Simulated assay, not measured.
Amino acid sequence: MGEAILACPNCDNSMFDQGRIYDYYDDYSPYMDIDVIKLADGDPVSSQKDECVHLFKCPNCGFDVQKKITIT
């Protein structure tokens, strides 16, 4: 699991970064260029930004949320 940086709104437990949401699209998504995949989100400007949508999940209650993070 990734870094815990969010508090779960359901149970206040730590949520963990599960990686890019784009990696969950299909079997080949983790191997595709991120700029190509980002075009699928419907916002052509998003591929020009230094940000990426990640999935965060609570191991305690199973709640998950998508959050944009800055790519460094």
Results as ranks from 00 to 15, higher is better:
residue 72 T to P: 15
residue 10 N to V: 11
residue 40 A to F: 09
residue 45 V to G: 11
residue 47 S to R: 13
residue 21 I to L: 15
residue 5 I to N: 12
residue 38 K to T: 04
residue 47 S to Y: 04
residue 37 I to T: 07
residue 30 P to M: 12
residue 7 A to T: 03
residue 17 D to C: 05
residue 56 F to V: 05
residue 15 M to Q: 03
residue 32 M to Q: 15
residue 38 K to W: 00
residue 63 F to D: 04
residue 54 H to A: 10
residue 47 S to C: 09
residue 54 H to M: 10
residue 14 S to V: 03
residue 20 R to S: 15
residue 31 Y to G: 09
residue 24 Y to T: 08
residue 21 I to S: 13
residue 45 V to M: 14
residue 71 I to P: 05
residue 40 A to D: 09
residue 61 C to V: 10
residue 27 D to P: 04
residue 25 Y to R: 04
residue 45 V to S: 14
residue 53 V to N: 07
residue 50 D to C: 02
residue 23 D to N: 05
residue 41 D to A: 00
residue 23 D to F: 02
residue 18 Q to D: 00
residue 68 K to A: 04
residue 2 G to M: 09
residue 39 L to Y: 04
residue 62 G to M: 05
residue 11 C to H: 08
residue 42 G to F: 02
residue 70 T to F: 00
residue 20 R to D: 06
residue 55 L to K: 14
residue 56 F to Y: 13
residue 2 G to A: 07
residue 1 M to V: 13
residue 58 C to F: 06
residue 15 M to E: 02
residue 20 R to M: 02
residue 71 I to N: 11
residue 33 D to V: 04
residue 44 P to L: 05
residue 56 F to P: 07
residue 33 D to Y: 00
residue 40 A to P: 03
residue 22 Y to R: 09
residue 68 K to L: 05
residue 69 I to Y: 12
residue 49 K to F: 10
residue 36 V to S: 07
residue 49 K to L: 14
residue 47 S to M: 08
residue 21 I to R: 11
residue 7 A to F: 01
residue 55 L to R: 15
residue 23 D to G: 02
residue 63 F to Y: 14
residue 1 M to W: 08
residue 30 P to A: 12
residue 63 F to M: 01
residue 63 F to L: 01
residue 31 Y to H: 12
residue 14 S to D: 15
residue 30 P to C: 13
residue 10 N to R: 13
residue 18 Q to M: 14
